[in-house]
Structure formats: C-alpha cells, structure tokens
C-alpha cells in the first residue's frame, strides 16, 4: 500500500472514532445542551475525517472538490441547526424573553 492509502485508512478510522464518540455523547450525556455540544462537534469532525480519507482515495481533483464542498455545506448546516435547536430549547425553558437572538 502507498503512503496515501495508509493516510486514507488512518483518516477513515479517525472519522469512525469521532462518529462513535458523538453517538456515545448523544446517548450518555445529561441534558439537551451537553448532548447538542457533543453531537454537533464530534459528528462534523468525523464527517471531515471521512471526507479527507475518501479524497485521498479519489482519482480526480473534481471528486476531492465535491467531497470538500459536502463537508463545507455540512458545517454551515450543522452550525445553524445547533444554534436553532439550542435557541428553541432555551425558549421552551425560560419563555420568549430570555432567548437571545
């Protein structure tokens, strides 16, 4: 196996580990905010590692670019989603007045 392949294997394994961590956090952490924190960070790092690992296997630069695009969009979507859910939960608990914009 070439160096790129070893790196790819490493990145994929690391990605899988991050996903596993995220799931453990989702299942074990107490409270919605703690779970939100664990899941959003770990899963998107995991997706980034998986995308990197696959980009190292890719035949063309286009494929690598598409993988990078998928990860970039995923980061934006996850950031906004986490923000919206945190805001929603805060409002549920403290009424509309306490939710910052």
């Amino acid at each position: 196996m070439t160096v790129a392949e070893w790196l790819s294997v490493g990145a994929l394994a690391l990605g899988a580990a991050f996903f596993f961590t995220g799931t453990v956090g989702l299942l074990r952490f107490p409270g919605t905010f703690a779970r939100l924190h664990a899941l959003t960070k770990a899963d998107n790092l995991g997706l980034g590692c998986v995308a990197l690992g696959l980009a190292l296997q890719a035949d063309s630069a286009w494929v690598a670019a598409k993988l990078a695009l998928v990860w970039g969009v995923a980061l934006v979507a996850a950031t906004v989603s986490a923000h919206l859910i945190a805001r929603y939960t805060l409002r549920e608990r403290g009424g509309t007045g306490r939710a910052p914009p």
């Binding site: 990605g15 996903f19 995220g22 799931t23 989702l26 899941l39 959003t40 899963d43 998107n44 995991g46 997706l47 998986v50 998928v70 995923a74 996850a78 989603s81 859910i85």
Partner: peptide, 9 residues
C-alpha cells in the same frame, strides 16, 4: 440530526 450527518458519511 445524527441520522443526517451519519447518512452523508
């Protein structure tokens, strides 16, 4: 959400 991100991977 976990479903979404993992499905993508």
């Amino acid at each position: 959400m976990l479903f979404g991100t993992t499905t993508v991977a």
